[in-house]
Amino acid sequence: MAKVLVVTSGKGGVGKTTSTAALGAALAQRGEKVVVVDFDVGLRNLDLVMGAERRVVFDLINVVQGVAKLSQALIRDKRLENLWLLPASQTRDKDALTDEGVGTIIEELRTKFDWILCDSPAGIERGATLAMRYADEAVIITNPEVSSVRDSDRIIGMLDSKTVKAEKGEQVKKHVLITRYDTARAARGEMLTIEDILEILATPLLGIIPESQDVLRASNVGSPVTLNNAGSAPARAYTDAARRLMGETITMLVPVERKGLMNRLLGRRAA
């Protein structure tokens, strides 16, 4: 059965778009049929992170307004044949999205895909509420930093009240994904610990994505990090998170770069 998953955070710049691309690609790499949907109308970026920015023909708003069919707006990934993108509009504003229109599109996507990943815009306005509106599950992207945790808490409250599931008396299944986690700073006690964050948010952990140059490198070239460098620490962390979404039980680790003295002495290559 299809699952609608919103990637949200409240705060901007924490890694929603990067995580949507990486989780979407990781699920597709494991054989799932996936569509990533950009809800950031007016400021789209998922197309750029996915490397499809030159191929956008129609967008979400065109489909909502009936200008284009869903099949015409979907862009198939050039690397993974079971990964698709539904881009946001760059020119319209977010008021062009309607609750009904989004509902119709999500219903149609449910018949075609295993996973529908909705990349939410920052904030708590219309775009963000519509991105989460029809979600079955939510990944809340949180940085180990006070303002991000506060905003995540706010978003959790909205997931529990403003979604269709909540209105039916059901629960959106929520997961916290901690991104930009710096092990060195954590060891020096300069960052909120994972335990602190989970205790405050009272939400289960989906994964810990380490701060890494590989993430920037991947978005530079327009490729989800799990595709661009599958052996890198963040890619392994995203792949583990995707497998947990699929129901597998995987030990929670903070993936570290595979390099250093011991590896060199043992002649191991950086993965």
Partner: peptide, 9 residues
């Protein structure tokens, strides 16, 4: 000690 990469990306 830390730079294990032989070929820089």
């Amino acid at each position: 000690f830390g730079g294990g990469r032989t070929v820089p990306p």
